[in-house]
Design a binder for these strands. Structure first.
Lengths: 205, 205
DNA sequence: TCACACCTGAGACAAAAAACACAAAAGAAA
DNA sequence: TTTCTTTTGTGTTTTTTGTCTCAGGTGTGA
């Protein structure tokens, strides 16, 4: 049980971005609560992304389709924002899908509305900037684990820093996300249970 | 020869972000032109990054030091902004270095000044947001080539979409950036010259 | 001109990971 | 429960990539 699950959207956003009450009200007046079943697509390949989603309950994934196979780009859980930023920003056709991995309840913010709000309220534009900042820092970190770490190290990095990923995402789904074959992850997992190799991840960066 | 090299900073920024003249003047009044020799470090590991740099002439790289070896994260050329966003945003110690790869002339914008300007001018905060957007889209793209492509495909992707990287960065420097050993890149290069394998990169995403 | 540093190419070998095939286990649905 | 589907584990083989090594090339500066 997530202890914030009983908080209102207003309280959640406020915890993340410290907006004044009037700005918050302005922002949230535009948000639309929707509920989608497992497997539904919030964005398809070639569509232009027009919204950003805040997950109330459930989980989403973004994935490419490469020669018929799914390549997972990202997983999103409760109290996080999800979207295709490239498509949203550039108003270009999306290269990937956004899918609900389970029954998911989420708040939808439309870009058009947000841009209008940016014009009305400096504080909301500042919120937009800070939201981007957070997404960027996360993105950067994820990008770097591929350069810095071997497959084995990548798995351990995730296990250490994002253990909930291993809890909520199947190994098969994880494999494309980490750029490691399913079988290899299975072997990595076994070897780290049997032998006590837990010192690998001491490197700090 | 870059045809924009004779443009003023004002004209360059304006081309990228379409700011009004008053806002541009406000923004550029704070910029400081500095010149650094090859090998100098604009940011060291453990330092907190306080500036963002716009490259007038020359090139920068960002890199981690992993067990004594350099792992390149990014290369930056003329008319681009460079910084360590994580450190800058979070005011946290940097995990990596920023180094001038050749004698470089650049404009320095301090975070403190920028934040002050954000408060003064909505248009400048909007500029800040749009700058982040551009950086984010780039970052996302780079991150995804690791998940989507094998080493061989990564090299070809760069060769096709960022040929200037191959021109200006040595293969040795490139190797850690692509997460491929120098020798393997050398082999990839050889095999793609001899055999006519140029259809690999037709996949669009 | 001569070191010196740095970069590239190439071969031999080792290590890692992927591919393939199939079995076992775990969940979901009837 | 039983059946059906999905997920995970494991053994073998094949491919890819890394490591180590040396040789040759290039540019720089003393």
């Amino acid at each position: 049980m997530n202890h914030t699950s009983s908080l209102s959207l207003k309280e959640k956003i406020n915890r993340l971005f410290f907006l004044s009450t009037p700005s918050l009200d302005l922002l949230l007046a535009e948000a639309q609560l929707i509920s989608v079943p497992k497997g539904s697509l919030l964005l398809k390949e070639r569509q232009t992304c027009r919204s950003i989603y805040f997950i109330e309950r459930g989980q989403l994934r973004t994935y490419y389709n490469k020669n018929g196979k799914d390549i997972n780009i990202n997983f999103y859980f409760e109290n996080n924002f999800a979207t295709n930023l490239k498509s949203l920003i550039e108003e270009s056709p999306s290269a990937f899908y956004i899918e609900a991995m389970e029954h998911t309840r989420l708040w939808k913010f439309d870009k058009e509305q947000l841009l209008r709000l940016y014009g009305q309220s400096k504080e909301i534009e500042s919120f937009g900037r800070r939201l981007l900042e957070k997404l960027l820092v996360k993105q950067e970190e994820h990008s770097n684990i591929f350069k810095l770490y071997s497959p084995k190290e990548r798995y351990h990095y995730i296990a250490k820093h994002y253990p909930h990923l291993l809890q909520r995402v199947s190994l098969s789904q994880l494999s494309s996300y980490l750029g490691i074959s399913r079988e290899t992850i299975s072997r990595i997992r076994r070897s780290s249970v049997t032998s006590g190799e837990w010192s690998v991840m001491n490197a700090r960066w």
